[in-house]
Amino acid sequence: MELAFYLGGLVAVIATLGVITGTNAVHSLLNLIVSLIAVAIVFFALGAPFAGALEIIVYAGAIMVLFVFVVMILNLGQGAVEQERLWLQARTWILPAILSLVLLGTLLVTLSAGDGGRMISGDMLTAKAVGRTLFGPWLLVVELAAMLLLAGLVTASHVGRLPRDRRDDKKGGN
């Protein structure tokens, strides 16, 4: 159990590093999927199989496929990779990196200073328990999530529409 957690965590961190430093969009996406699956393994290790399943199905499956589609539509070539390499210079990333490290350090220090000692046994919290929570006291949250998805759907279909020709363009709608 512990082994799965630590290995999964390590893989997730390395893959994420690959995501943010990659120059090829497709490679980065694959790295991201790896990272997500690694996190899903961590979920299983922690004893949250429902969340782990959702992570793989929705995140790594649906959302990442969306990304892949978009990257395919854009059809970025070798020029894009060169461009990325050019943009990724030390002076670009040194300040954000330091800032992130400072934040991370602060978080870790705060964590270690907290009332530690609680252990995660890895007992299963099954989908049944989650379902009881969601459709019991949290019903309103589910409704809110539905509203959010609807709003996202409408927005995406509106914003993502491309003008068919110049006349539409002139109308200035999109």
Partner: peptide, 12 residues
């Protein structure tokens, strides 16, 4: 097996 300390999960 003692389980995983919560801090490790949060640190990750």
């Amino acid at each position: 097996m003692n389980g995983i300390p919560m801090e490790h999960g949060l640190a990750l």
